[in-house]
Each structure stands twice: as C-alpha cells, then as structure tokens.
Write a protein that binds this DNA or RNA. Sequence first.
DNA 1: CTCTACCCATAGACTTTCTAGGGAGGAAGG
DNA 2: CCTTCCTCCCTAGAAAGTCTATGGGTAGAG
Lengths: 116, 116
Amino acid sequence: MAKPRLELLRGTLDMMVLKALALEPAHGYAVARWIEEGTDDLLRIEEGSLYPALHRMERRRWIVSEWGQSENNRRAKYYRLTDEGRKKLEAETAAWFKFAEAVSVVMGSKLQETPQ
Amino acid sequence: MAKPRLELLRGTLDMMVLKALALEPAHGYAVARWIEEGTDDLLRIEEGSLYPALHRMERRRWIVSEWGQSENNRRAKYYRLTDEGRKKLEAETAAWFKFAEAVSVVMGSKLQETPQ
DNA sequence: CTCTACCCATAGACTTTCTAGGGAGGAAGG
DNA sequence: CCTTCCTCCCTAGAAAGTCTATGGGTAGAG
C-alpha cells in the first residue's frame, strides 16, 4: 500500500498484448516486460491480470500457444497471433484511437495520431 | 442487439461527468446529453451507468446535489462539484492523458495534447 | 547452498458497466 | 380527453476485467 501507482489498464490490456505478439511470438513474462519497458514502467502488468488475459484470448482463438524454451533456458509458453487475432488487433486499435479521440475532445484537448 | 456500438467507457465515465459539472452544475440527463453530443454520439451514456456513477461520486463527496426545476419544467436533481471533486477531476485528467500517451506509444502512434 | 530472477498459474474480492426493468410528469397532437 | 413522446429519476442483477495474494518450479550467480 506504499505507492498509489497508476492502477488501471482500463480494457486496453488485450489490445497491447496482441500488439506485442504481432511483433513476434513471445511468452507471457516477456510480453509484460515489453509493455512495462515501452512505457517507462508507467503501465505495470500484474501477473494476475496477464495470465487470465492470455487464457481468455486463447479460448477466443485470437492466439495459440506452444510450450518451448526461453532465452534464459526456462520452460515457457509461447503465444502467437492467429488471423482472427490480427483482425481483432486492428479493430481494437482503431476503436481505441477513436475512443481516445472522443474522450480527448470532451476533456477539452485534442489528440493527434501520427503514423508509425 | 442491432448495433455493436462502442461498448466501454473504461473508467473514464467519472472523469467526463466531473468535467461536465465543472463547466456548470447540471442534472444527470443533461450531463449524458452533453457527452453524447460532444462526441457525435460515439460515447453513449447509459442511464444504468450514469446514475450509479453520480451516486457513487456523491458518496465520495466529489459532488453534491440539490433538487430543482429543469429548463423543461421538470423535477431534476442538480449536481455541482465540490473542491474535492475539482481536485479529483484534475488528478484524473492528468492521469488519463498520461495513460493514453503510454498506450499510444505502445500501440505505435503518438498522442499530442494541445491546451484548450 | 542460498538467493534472485525468471516463468507459470489460480482463487477470491472488488469495481465498473450494461441490460432490463420500473415510474412519474409535462407537452403536443389527434 | 387521450394517447404518445420526451424528459428525468432510479434499481437489481448479470457480466466482465483487474488486483491482491498465493503457490510452485527451475536456472544461474555468488
């Protein structure tokens, strides 16, 4: 209870995990590290959120898994996107930017998207 | 069930309601209309989400209410921000833009905030 | 051998949102 | 008058996602 820490992922966790896996197949732990490092630790991915999310998405056929060996020589479950997952990622990304834009307008600021 | 409609407010409802009330005291129905109109109906505020949110925030002393008469000559409960609510609004707004920025970075685009 | 980092997983609590109701009153048109 | 629409309020219960709190196992460093 020491730090307040930015608590919520607010429904964007799936999208970010899919994005990570779109870059390359990876295991859960690596996905969490990738997101945390990519945001200077602003977004902290709790394992209690991450693994249920992965299982959820696998049930929905957005990703598939396979046991393998990690770089550090440990047992790890590697996930990769399915075609369906890729479509979902695109849809969610578009919806999120639209949503964020709308919230921005309401909150009195403007959001701008620039191509990667 | 006809339209898929952007389903989630993802924790931003309180913030937007506070923003609306920061502009001027208003009743729930008007707040909902304000948000919907301000976003071209992209963000639809369901009453089943709105009223619980208002009561929640009142319990937390972010807003206070008073019964009054609406423009259309109807009984309406007017809400206005407390000092605490104003602080909460500022904090939530800052946190949201920070969060949205971080998500944007992860998703491969950049978000820019412009002053009102 | 011990400790740390890596890697997986689940249960239960908590919160928020939605669906699906219900109700009452003013206004407007027939 | 009567019916219908819009305004305005409210709640219960389901559904979903995240967090806290645990638990366990293994490789490698010191």
